[in-house]
Design a protein around this nucleic acid. Sequence first.
DNA 1: CCGAAAACCTGAACGC
DNA 2: TGCGTTCAGGTTTTCG
Length: 287
Amino acid sequence: MPELPEVEVVRRGLAEHVLDRTITEVRVDHPRAVRRHAAGGEDFAARLKGRTITAVSRRGKYLWLEIGEDEAVIAHLGMSGQMLVADAERPVEKHLRIRFSFADAGPELRFVDQRTFGGLSIHPLVDGVPEPVAHIGRDPMDPLFDLDAAVAGMRRRRTELKRALLDQTIVSGIGNIYADEALWRARLHGLRPTEKLTRRQGVAVLEAASEVMVEALAQGGTSFDALYVNVNGASGYFDRSLNVYGQGDRACRRCGTPIVREPFMNRSSYSCPRCQPRPRPRASRVF
DNA sequence: CCGAAAACCTGAACGC
DNA sequence: TGCGTTCAGGTTTTCG
């Protein structure tokens, strides 16, 4: 599941393999992959023909290819999206949705997406970011990321800490996996109410999120060959270094207590019941 | 305006 | 063996 580190791996791969190349043809094989492009698949393809990719950028989990000064192709990977660089002769993937050919006759770019939560679309750039990205907060790897402002943003909310971490308008790039990992590192439970979060706790959990994503990027960035811009969503980080995510019943690496899995928003949260004690239930006012 | 929850998808894993 | 159910989860949309 691509979160910030995985998307950054893809961005780097694309910067290496498609930057400065001119598109000659785009084929859209599945309409759902361009559903966010309001004018439709034919318009999407027509508008890219002859354009040159001038930059490959990212904010949080959003990735985009700039085509000149004022337009960009957003690529959101959703749950299962991949951007693959492949020789045209290579057999097509089962879930191939969109393919780009280039004027230099080099390898093509393929957008492959099994679950079709992802997609591509063209938008004007506004203050340097595509329109649909305007409401997304800066991520912790952004040089202009403002830690104190992000902490203040979380504390202003009246919700639970993990929900705030997943809110892409406050801090972007954090998904379910890195949220759980950051909470474990900061020794905080995701159910803690944000209005009672201290500044110090807020700083601790965001710094932990930043650290874990930097470490994941360092591992994930090492594993793709020249013609395959990886990306299974699985940076090498997945199995080896996760402390809580997916580790139900395994011993906590700090204290040995079995990690517990709890339902959370139709999915799961993992935490150490000893290192990350649940908040006390709110004193009941009724009665 | 805000937060919670449903909806959108496919395939692997699991239970009977 | 095979069928039905559950789970995975980022973002947008809908609801209260």
